[in-house]
C-alpha cells in the first residue's frame, strides 16, 4: 500500500514536470584520487558556520562530493541522525539519554568529535557601572526557576548594587545554548525562570541589552566580539581557584585554556558508524579536524589547543578502524 501511494505520487509529479532523476550512486571512487558521493550534515545552528566553512573549503579540494549542511537545531538534528538520515550531526551540547536510546533502537553507533569552543558571554549595558564581576552562585540566584517573580532587583543579588529592577535576556528554550547555560549555572539542564526575554536569534538579544540599561544577557562570544563597543562584558567567578583565581573575562586565551569556566562550552560533531565506511566521510572528517582550528576562529569561535585536536584525531582514527 505504502509503495503504491509512493509510486502514484511520484508518477503524478513526474508527469507534471517531465523530469524525475534518481539519487546518484553514493559510493564510487572517481579517477585520480577524486572522491564522489555525498556528505549530509544537519543539526545545531550554532555550529553551522564552522561546518559551512569546512564544507566550503573541502569542496574546493573535492568538487565532486555533494555537500549539504542543514540547521534544524541540535535536537532536531539528532532526531534525523538517530534515524540514519544524516551522516554527521552538529551539536552545541552533548547527546542526551533519550537521543542515545533512539540511536540504539535503530542500531546506529556514533562517535563524538570536539571541533572548537564557544565562550558563553555574560553582558550588561555599557551604562551599567556597578556590575564589575559576577559569581556563578549569583547568576544561579538570578536565573533559577525559584527566582521567578521573587528576585527582581539588583540589590537582591548583591547588597551593594542599587535597588533597581533588572531585565534578563537569553537563548530560547529550544536551543542547545539554553540547555548548556542552565546545566552550567542552575545545575539542571533545561530549567530556569520563565520571565526573561528569550530569542533564538542572538542578534535580537544583542539589541535588547544595547537598549536597556538594566539588562543582563548571555550569548555566544562571537556576538559580543561583533558588538564590542555597544556591550559591556562581565567577568565570571566560578569560586574554584583551581582553574584561575577570581573573576575571569572570556577571551580567546581564557576559553582556550579553560580558565573561563563553567561557561566555555565545547562545540561537537557526531559521526554515524555506517557512514564511516565511505571514503568521502573519512576524508571529510579528517579535513574537518585538520582545519577546524583556523576556520572556527574565522567565523567567530575559539579553537582548541593543538594537543586537543591531536587527541580528537586519534579518537576518530580509532573509531574508523573499528567500524571499517
Amino acid at each position: 500500500m505504502k509503495t503504491q501511494i509512493q509510486f502514484i505520487a511520484l508518477f503524478v509529479v513526474s508527469l507534471l514536470l517531465g523530469a524525475c532523476g534518481g539519487k546518484q550512486n553514493a559510493d564510487q571512487q572517481g579517477a585520480g584520487g577524486k572522491l564522489k558521493g555525498e556528505v549530509r550534515i544537519d543539526g545545531s545552528s550554532t555550529v553551522y558556520p564552522i561546518s559551512e566553512a569546512v564544507a566550503e573549503e573541502f569542496r574546493a579540494e573535492q568538487p565532486d562530493v555533494k555537500m549539504t549542511v542543514g540547521l534544524s537545531g541540535t535536537g532536531g538534528g539528532f532526531k534525523k541522525f538517530g534515524r540514519g538520515e544524516t551522516d554527521i550531526n552538529n551539536a552545541s551540547r552533548p547527546i542526551k539519554e533519550e537521543e542515545i536510546a533512539a540511536c540504539n533502537q535503530n542500531n546506529i553507533h556514533y562517535t563524538e568529535v570536539q571541533v572548537a569552543f564557544d565562550g558563553l558571554s555574560i553582558v550588561v549595558n555599557p551604562q551599567n557601572t556597578f556590575v564589575k564581576d559576577i559569581t556563578v552562585s549569583e547568576l544561579k540566584k538570578m536565573w533559577e526557576p525559584a527566582a521567578q517573580g521573587k528576585i527582581k532587583t539588583w540589590n537582591q543579588i548583591r547588597p551593594e548594587w542599587p535597588n533597581e529592577k533588572f531585565n534578563l535576556y537569553g537563548a530560547g528554550t529550544e536551543s542547545g545554548t539554553y540547555d548548556y547555560f542552565t546545566e552550567a549555572i542552575v545545575g539542571k539542564s533545561h530549567s530556569s525562570r520563565g520571565d526573561y526575554t528569550a530569542s533564538e536569534d542572538d542578534n535580537v538579544l544583542v539589541q535588547g541589552v544595547m537598549n536597556d540599561k538594566n539588562a543582563l544577557g548571555f550569548f555566544g562570544y562571537a556576538y559580543y566580539e561583533a558588538n564590542m563597543d555597544k556591550l559591556k562584558l562581565v567577568p565570571v567567578d566560578d569560586q574554584n581557584d583551581a582553574n584561575g583565581k577570581g573573576a575571569i573575562l572570556p577571551s580567546v586565551e581564557t576559553v582556550k585554556n579553560q580558565t573561563y569556566a563553567p561557561l566555555s562550552r565545547p562545540l561537537l560533531i557526531y559521526i554515524n558508524s555506517v557512514a564511516v565506511k565511505r571514503p568521502e566521510i573519512q576524508s571529510f572528517v579528517n579535513f574537518y579536524i585538520d582545519n577546524a582550528g583556523v576556520l572556527s576562529r574565522e567565523v567567530g569561535f575559539i579553537p582548541m589547543e593543538d594537543a586537543q585536536y591531536d587527541a580528537q584525531r586519534s579518537k576518530w582514527n580509532e573509531f574508523v578502524k573499528t567500524h571499517q
Binding site: G21, T68, L71
Partner: peptide
C-alpha cells in the same frame, strides 16, 4: 520547509524534484 528538511548550505543547483 526547515521542518520538512530543507537545508541551508547547498552548493549545487537542484536538478530534479528529488533534489535537496
Amino acid at each position: 520547509l526547515i521542518v520538512v528538511g530543507a537545508l541551508a548550505y547547498v552548493p549545487f543547483v537542484p536538478t530534479s524534484p528529488t533534489s535537496d
